[in-house]
Design a protein around this nucleic acid. Structure first.
Length: 424
DNA sequence: TCTGGGGTCCTAGGACCC
DNA sequence: TCTGGGGTCCTAGGACCC
């Protein structure tokens, strides 16, 4: 039998902030989404105040009305990404195979190892000691059960942070599954949970026992697989090599309403540049570019406009200038004056490995090579001296439309001039 | 005044082919 | 009265995840 571990950092973003701000330990801490919009991470104390995941921060403030102190921070992705790398590198030591599933969690394949439970406890003890970040570990014979075990480990406040569903007898496992709402299962979202519940499938146990063919006809093969995984039949592999992205997006809400074509163009150019960096980092080229703009959907008192467009390229490209030119063509067709725009975004689609392209009969290969060398130099400079050191002129310089991050912590671990200072 | 961003997979239906 | 059968590819939309 396979034994998989799911290791997940507790309140990851909030915990990262607390590592460098020990004064925030034991306090209600929330981390906000881009533009300081919504709550995306909460310390245990913040959860206890009833602050919901995804709740708009201005509503939280209105509701709590200053009666309870809450420390809010803008998100600091440079910090979280760096801390994530530390955790993942450390966790890789515990198993021959690791799948990094998200910024704060990974699967480890412990199949065949001597004492998985002891390893789980070792992880639970070692990660906070080495990185300052608390983790919980779930063990199970399939990914879905390991996920579930992790959830149970986190829910059990008095537990030791490890939950092992792999060594449970069938009877004991079913007893636990009977107490878990079906919506708590990985892969069962709110829509499907509501439909399942209406049909009488309300618990994890009921889903496990549901007929496979019935699930396929009334729902999909995805849900049928989830049910099989609950039965201990692995349907999802641990993928230890990260596949290349099939699409790369970059979109942001503006820090202030934007009305002019020129300003939207600056934003779109900026986002294309960011997406194209990621594209070149995985050595791909894009065959299509999509552009999207929209007004503020929450303003019922303002005229609304939302539109997007997909533009094919004559020949796949990874050159920021070419992609930006195409995106601006798209923007020109999308733009309508007289609206207050709140958000723009671009996506690079139809990605293929660089160098496998079909040539353009009318293209200029020499020009193309020069472009590739220029992009390589640009990426190198921006890697060495920081993102945004070398940019296209069309991206704008002041960027008054850029997102708000009024309460961002320093880049403690990734910038020399912002290093954390420890006084002993 | 204030409401995030970036992904994946599956399915149904239409276009098209022989 | 009666109007084939089987297949592929693409896309939009819906659902999910963190």
């Amino acid at each position: 039998m396979a034994i998989l571990a799911l290791v997940d950092c507790n309140s990851f973003y909030a915990s990262c902030e607390q590592v460098f701000r020990p004064d925030l330990l034991g306090r209600a801490v929330v981390v906000l989404s881009n533009n300081d919009g919504c709550v995306v991470a909460r310390s245990r104390e913040a959860k206890a105040l009833g602050i919901a995941m995804g709740e708009p921060w201005f509503q939280v403030r209105l509701r709590l009305d200053g009666a309870r102190p809450v420390s809010a921070l803008s998100s600091n992705y440079a910090l979280y990404a760096d801390m994530s790398n530390r955790v993942m590198r450390l966790l890789a030591r515990f198993a021959p195979r690791q799948e990094v599933y998200s910024i704060d969690e990974c699967f480890l394949d412990l199949t065949g190892l001597a004492d998985p439970s002891a390893i789980a406890h070792g992880i639970r003890a070692t990660v906070p000691r080495w990185t300052g970040l608390p983790v919980c570990v779930g063990l199970g014979p399939t990914k879905t059960l390991a996920k579930l075990a992790n959830r149970l480990a986190k829910q059990d406040a008095d537990g030791d942070g490890v939950c092992d569903l792999a060594t449970l007898s069938e009877v004991d496992l079913d007893r636990r599954l009977a107490e878990i709402p079906v919506g708590d299962i990985w892969g069962v979202g709110p829509r499907i949970a509501a439909r399942l519940t209406a049909l009488g499938v309300t618990t994890a146990l009921a889903l496990k026992q549901a007929d496979s063919a019935w699930l396929r006809t009334h729902f999909s093969v995805v849900l049928a697989r989830t049910a099989l995984e609950l039965r201990g039949v692995p349907c999802l592999d641990v993928e230890d090599v990260t596949p290349d992205k099939q699409q790369i997006q970059c979109s942001r809400s503006f820090g202030m309403p934007v009305t002019t074509f020129e300003t939207l163009g600056e934003a779109v150019t900026t986002y294309v540049a960011r997406a194209a960096e990621k594209l070149r980092a995985q050595q791909s080229e894009a065959g299509m570019v999509s552009v999207m703009i929209r007004t503020n959907l929450f303003r019922s008192d303002e005229p609304q406009y939302s539109n997007s467009l997909v533009l094919p390229l004559r020949e796949p490209a990874a050159d920021t200038r070419r992609l930006a030119r195409t995106a601006r063509h798209g923007l020109r067709r999308l733009y309508r004056p007289g609206f207050r725009y709140a958000k723009a975004g671009v996506a690079l689609l139809a990605l293929s490995p660089a160098g496998e392209r079909q040539g353009d009969l009318f293209g200029d290969p020499g020009r193309r090579d020069r472009g590739e060398r220029l992009m390589a130099v640009m990426d190198r400079i921006n890697r060495s001296y920081g993102r945004g050191t070398l940019v296209l002129g069309g991206a704008g310089l002041n960027k008054p439309w850029a997102m708000r991050q009024s309460i961002r912590s320093p880049h403690y671990t990734t910038r020399w001039d912002e290093l954390a200072v420890v006084r002993c």
